[in-house]
Simulated assay, not measured.
Amino acid sequence: MAVTLAELARRFQGRVRGNPELVIERVAPLESAGPQDIAYLSDKKYFPVLANTAAGVVILSESDASEYGGCALIVTDPHLCFARIAQWLHPYPVFTPGTHPTAVINSDSRIAKTAWVGPHSVVEDGVEIGDDVYVGPGCFIGNHVTIGARSRLVGHVSIGDRCSIGEDCLLHPGAVIGSDGFGYARNGEQWQKVPQLGRVIIGSNVEIGANTTIDRGALNDTVIGNGVKLDNQIQIAHNVHIGDNTAIAACVGIAGSTRIGKRCTLGGQAGITGHLDIADDVHITAGSLVTSSIKQAGAYSSSLKAEPAEKWRRNAARLHHLDEMARRLTKLEEKLQQQSEEHEN
């Protein structure tokens, strides 16, 4: 797609500095952008790259505009503006509605005439697929699943029986929705499986990354709210509830029956133990382990940064003596307090 800078400014509420008739064809990073590309700057540490960019246009904030003499689109939030322009200039490929000859579709399923079911996909009994849905190659859609309008299963996505996907969702390759939760009762030295009878309910405008798994509920449902964004290789256990517009980075593990509020963020490799409540607007940094409920909004961390191995071994050895050191310190404080009181008397 090719568009003038003036049109971009009109669509995305920006101010043009330079030639409004300059034609832009695509987005690109500052360091490799060319004359028909648009790039952006959102961090001052990239000023040296900005000075040498060959981009036709750079999206800048008002405060940074003076650092660049070339053509610019000046907006309030450069990163957000760049994301919107990128989505507009690079839309998903257009598909022709229908079903591939190799797709296996149960006659009892209802598939909108504007939807597409790709090669080697399987659609089971009682499935409902909405308008403009794209089901890519190799997908499995279980019995009585519903998929809302304009949702997109990129390929090799599996959706278990009775699960529900909202409108405008994006599921990347390898995502598994509605696998059995990890539920077992001990039977002597063995384990008795507990049937997982709930569903997974996914709201609208949700993105689920590659190889992310969301288990169905044991009795009640696992629920993913509207606008939730899940990165790759996340594990969400049975009966978890995730509030609207929460974003979770890669390799996070969330144990069963935890409830996470709205607008939260979880950094990569964070771990959340089961049966916890996380309030709205909580931000958990990468690598943190959360073992108790969080009732107040804010940022939380629990990880230790990496250090040279020799220094870490010394510190780890001292950790074993913390209780003894604390007791000795308490005794010293008591003794000093006693001496102070005797001196005063």
Rank of each mutant, 00 (worst) to 15 (best):
T96S: 12
K45S: 13
A9R: 01
Q269E: 11
I214T: 01
S179I: 07
L322W: 08
R17Y: 06
L5M: 00
G183C: 08
S42V: 13
G34E: 12
E207H: 04
N205I: 08
R84F: 14
V123Q: 03
N106M: 15
R327N: 08
H172Q: 14
N143V: 15
T222I: 04
G148Q: 10
V145Y: 02
I242D: 13
D277G: 09
I236F: 04
I248F: 07
N211V: 05
N205E: 14
T114W: 07
R313V: 07
G166L: 10
E341F: 04
M325E: 05
N239I: 02
D37M: 03
H156I: 09
A112Q: 10
G261S: 12
I38Q: 12
G181K: 08
V206Y: 01
P48N: 09
V145M: 06
D125Y: 08
E25G: 01
G126I: 12
I74L: 11
G256C: 13
K113Q: 08
V133G: 03
Q296R: 03
Y92T: 02
G138K: 15
N52R: 12
T291C: 10
E310Q: 05
F182M: 10
R199M: 13
A72W: 02
H79P: 01
F140A: 00
Q233K: 08
Q36Y: 13
H79S: 04
